[in-house]
Write a protein that binds this DNA or RNA. Structure first.
Ligand SMILES: [Zn+2]
Ligand SMILES: [Zn+2]
Ligand SMILES: [Zn+2]
Length: 304
DNA sequence: GAGTTTGAAACT
DNA sequence: CAGTTTCAAACTC
């Protein structure tokens, strides 16, 4: 286990699972918190935040992290050649990866358009350094941006607020609107129309609904065009959730497949709905089962 | 798809 | 801390 001290009292804690070595995580823990107590605790401390999906990290990274902390050159790590960013064509630019949404949400880059960000398994050292640099700049960099408001408050709000000037906070340029939440008092937006009573917001959120469905009402064909008026769900990993985007995608795929099957068998729309709903039920129970299972394993492994 | 607009994050 | 630059995504056509 390696602890990298960061500014602002945060620490980057790398935990290696004894068996597989494949599951490591970065944790942010407050400086005053007792590491051993945390590790032996069965229940995650509320102040401890799992920075999602910063894994896997090879065992050697521990050495590199230590050397980074002591100011040594990480290239001095003994052993087999380690793929470094500089060994590959194009300068590694992961240091600037804070611009990339994948990186910012703790993921490896995947189908994003960021410029040679090297945020992948081939550049683990660069990536790790970038994560550390990012946390040095902002210890909360990987915290979810949408937190609940004051305790007991139902409405979530953006932890920093937006600074929109030209979008009226009614386009996805606005992080509040993107997260489907109202702007709050901490937003510094100009010309905000993203508030509860906003008529512009209401018309915007009510219009793109099922109005076009009437055109296709006679058709029993479940073509994708029929759903073109439905709200689009976008990949947003900044919202912390126990259900990953991959699971959402897989579930949607299952539902689509079920719909196609119903279509293939020329089921009635009513029966198709029932089949899809039943499939959704199966997906949900599977998600729950896996969720509980992984929670159980986590508790077990955290007592190492 | 190309080109424009936008605001977060980086930088000074 | 404020002004500027850089960046990748949202948006438009
Ligand atoms: Zn906004
Ligand atoms: Zn806002
Ligand atoms: Zn606003």
């Amino acid at each position: 286990m390696v602890i990298c001290q960061l500014k602002g009292g945060a620490q980057m804690l790398c935990i290696e699972h004894s068996g597989t070595r494949e599951l490591k995580a970065l944790h942010l823990v407050p400086q005053h918190q007792d590491q051993n107590n945390y590790l032996q605790s069965d229940v995650p401390k509320p102040m401890t935040t799992l920075v999602g999906r910063f894994l896997p990290v090879p065992a050697k990274l521990n050495l590199i992290a230590q050397q980074l902390d002591s100011g040594a050159r990480p290239s001095a790590v003994p052993g087999p050649a380690f793929p470094t960013g500089s060994a590959l064509p194009g300068p590694p630019k992961i240091a600037l990866a804070g611009y990339c949404d994948c990186f910012a949400s703790g993921d490896f880059c995947n189908n994003c358009n960021c410029n040679n960000c090297c945020n992948n398994l081939r550049h683990e050292i660069e990536r790790f350094k970038a994560i550390k640099a990012c946390l040095d700049r902002n210890p909360e960099a990987f915290q979810p941006k949408i937190g609940k408001g004051k305790l007991g408050d139902v409405k979530p709000r953006h932890t920093k607020g937006c600074n929109c000037k030209r979008s009226g906070c009614l386009k996805n340029y606005c992080e509040c609107y993107e997260a489907k939440i109202m702007c709050s008092s901490i937003c510094k937006c100009i010309g905000c129309k993203n508030y509860e009573e906003s008529p512009e917001r209401k018309t915007l959120t009510n219009l793109p609904s099922y109005v076009e469905m009437a055109d296709l009402e006679g058709s029993h064909h479940l073509s994708p065009t029929k759903f073109s008026g439905l709200p689009r769900f976008r990949k947003d990993r900044r919202l912390s959730s126990c259900i990953s985007w991959e699971v959402v995608e897989a579930t949607c795929a299952c539902l689509l497949a079920q719909g196609e099957e119903a279509e293939k068998e020329h089921c009635s729309e009513c029966l198709a709905e029932q089949m899809i709903l039943e499939e959704f039920g199966r997906c949900l129970s599977q998600i729950l089962r896996i969720e509980f299972k992984s929670k159980g394993l986590k508790i077990e492994s955290s007592t190492m």
